[in-house]
Design a protein around this nucleic acid. Structure first.
Length: 599
RNA sequence: GGGGACGUAGCUCAAUUGGUUAGAGCACCGGCCUGUCACGCCGGAGGUUGCGGGUUCGAGCCCCGUCGUCCUCGCCA
């Protein structure tokens, strides 16, 4: 062992170590200088230990006095109790506060320039490390290795490690095999935009990086590996969001001889253990199962945040009795009129703020939002004059309204009403603080009974809502050709606190059904064979009934870490333009490289 | 591609809404200090207000363009 190597960690020493000779390695967290003493708080992953360097060792005192934030030091010394004379001078804020290390040797392992932004600040009560006010994110991403020194990020990455470990242990115990699948694969035309990789040995031809291991995992089922999982990197060349990165990590999973309940059982077992072991929260199982049509109506979203109420209520039948043109017009063209009762909020919104609510609905595609305040006897303001007393009575009853409530209405095509009120609901919950974003408060549910198809108005054809191998509900099969829009799928999403954290389906294993489904999608057998031939071939060779799911692990980590920014849970994330500000990727390459690839 | 917010010292922010020499805290440098622990005290240095143009007697502030960052719609089977 080299003389500078550590014998202990910086968070380790206690009164029991007093008198021992130790060596600590770490970064200078803070320093306090005196004419005859230098105090250095030395930091590593495990904590902080105070180092004292005294002037009776001038050669080391000089080095210590020069040391600055984030220098890397090795301190050899003796552990002693913090005393002045015979009086104890412990620091109760530090786990190591009873002791300090009197330096007998100081080695500078590396210097560090003044960091471009602050990494540490005053610790909060009960914390070893203090979080500074965060610098601009682009600066922090450029110096990611410095930003990653922040204890919050250490904790998050430690938590992700535990998440992966729990997943592997749990699925192993449930009988799953972890199997890797290729990164270099074949582009499949539907779905997200592919990242492409040129082939050097087959000039002019391209691999695609996987959007998910979907096709491979189904083939593994054909091959008899009846419980498969993989912690898989997936790549999609689409625009980024606060919860979306171009490369992200899925827990990909597939099982044979199963129906939906079997997948739910495995995932509920796993998810409950993840939350118990990562954040100490017990989730009640089984998770609630909500239908797509139900959540769209009540929450205006297929991934509702169930931590708060503010449910949407259909008032179309009552609105039809009014002469209010905005209501009548929407209903006459087959639309809907729905409302939210914002409890006790009548006085919380100024006229200007109500206009802002209308703006939010407009941004969601709507024409605006009508409002009315509820008083003891009657409604007031907004569209009150369009609502005759008997209408008011009905609305009051339907919406459970009492004096002081604020009623918000949106009238439009049904999907716009959902989007408008859904967005409004989220906004209101934030503004009215109906939930605590920092609390260990998790509302988790399955959303089921998704439509199999959605109508693509541009291409004038039915498109697969999930993917073209998703099995329709058995009872809906007879309507596959006659009424595709009414067919529901054996597809399911796992929704946590308003985030889609997973999705999957039971797959079609019957070639006849698969063929019928391709026809609905406007694909001939030949076209289907050209696109998915290898999978269709494989499915012919004795495919078992199978199904599975993929969980978005980055989003899971966001939930566990209680952040709304996916970059907080990824060690080296990309910015909104999909750039890595630390490495500078993407970047031009040498002409020679391009030439080799025939580009 | 559309909509929105932001860009002032190394960092976080301010600048009485167009008016004198653009300030503060932290960081940095120097000095003082025998027990600090966010040490304290004194002093100092540090600015093309993202960039380019325009309006004006006068622009950090208004207008146009551009670059960058974030949020969002489209997109994400």
């Amino acid at each position: 062992m080299a003389s500078w190597q550590r014998t202990h960690f910086c968070g380790e020493l206690r009164e029991t170590h007093i008198g021992q000779s130790v060596t600590l390695n770490g970064w200078v967290n803070t320093f306090r200088m005196y004419p005859d003493q230098v105090f250095i708080d030395l930091r590593d992953r495990y904590g902080i230990t105070q180092i004292v360097v005294e002037s009776d060792r001038p050669e080391f005192f000089k080095i210590a006095a020069e040391a600055r934030s984030e220098w890397v030091l090795s301190i050899q010394g003796r552990v002693r109790e913090r005393m002045i004379g015979s009086e104890k001078k412990h620091n109760p804020k530090l786990a190591t506060g009873a002791i300090e290390v009197l330096a007998e040797n100081v080695t500078v392992l590396n210097r560090c320039p003044t960091p471009p932004f602050e990494l540490f600040s005053v610790p909060q009560e009960g914390q070893t490390f203090g979080e500074p006010e965060l610098a601009n994110e682009d600066l922090r991403l450029q110096y990611r290795y410095l930003d990653l020194r922040r204890p919050t990020l250490h904790r998050t990455l430690a938590m992700r490690h535990r998440l992966n470990k729990v997943i592997r242990d749990n699925l192993d115990a449930q009988g799953f095999f972890e199997i890797e699948t290729p990164l270099l694969g074949k582009s499949t035309p539907e779905g997200a935009r592919d990242y492409l990789v040129p082939s050097r040995v087959s000039l002019g031809q391209w691999y695609a990086l996987p959007q998910s291991p979907q096709l491979y995992k189904q083939i593994l089922m054909v091959a008899g590996y009846d419980k498969y999982f993989q912690i898989a990197r997936c790549l999609r060349d689409e625009d980024l969001r606060a919860d979306r990165q171009p490369e992200f990590t899925q827990l990909d999973l597939e099982m044979s001889f199963v129906e939906m309940d079997d997948v739910f059982g495995v995932i509920e077992n796993l998810t409950a253990e993840v939350f118990r072991r990562c954040v100490g929260v017990t989730l009640p199982t089984p998770f609630p199962r909500l239908t797509y049509s139900d959540v769209m109506l009540r929450y205006g979203s297929d991934k509702p945040d169930l931590r708060y109420g503010l449910e949407i209520v259909d008032v179309g039948d009552i609105a039809a009795q009014t002469e209010f043109q905005a209501f009548k017009g929407a209903l006459e063209t087959g639309g809907a009129v729905r409302a939210i009762n914002v409890n006790a909020a009548a006085d919380k919104f100024s006229r200007k703020q109500l206009d802002e609510l209308a703006e939010i609905v407009k941004r969601a595609g709507g024409k605006g939002c009508a409002w009315v305040k509820v008083e003891a006897e009657k409604f007031a303001g907004g569209i009150e004059k369009f609502l005759a007393p008997p209408i008011q009575v009905q609305l009051r009853q339907r919406l459970g309204a009492k004096a002081g409530d604020l009623l918000l209405f949106v009238a439009d095509k049904a999907d716009i009403v959902c989007a408008g009120l859904g967005t409004l609901r989220q906004h209101l919950a934030g503004v009215l603080k109906l939930y605590d974003p920092n609390a260990l408060d998790y509302k988790i549910a399955w959303v089921i009974d998704f439509p199999s198809f959605i109508w693509d108005d541009e291409e004038k054809r039915w498109a697969a809502n999930h993917h073209p191998f998703t099995a329709p509900l058995d009872g809906d099969l007879p309507r596959l050709e006659s009424d595709p829009g009414s067919v529901k799928a054996k597809a399911y999403d796992l929704v946590i606190n308003g985030y889609e954290c997973g999705g999957g389906s039971i797959r079609i294993h019957n070639p006849d059904v698969q063929s019928r489904l391709f026809k609905v999608l406007g694909m001939t057998d030949e076209q289907a064979k050209a696109r998915f031939g290898f999978l269709l071939d494989a499915l012919k060779f004795g495919a078992p009934p199978h199904g599975g799911i993929a969980l978005g692990l980055d989003r899971f980590a966001m939930m566990l870490a209680r952040t709304t920014n996916i970059r907080d849970v990824i060690a080296f994330p990309k910015n909104q333009k999909a750039r890595d500000l630390m490495t500078g990727a993407p970047a031009p390459v040498d002409a020679k490289q391009l030439k080799e690839l025939g580009l």
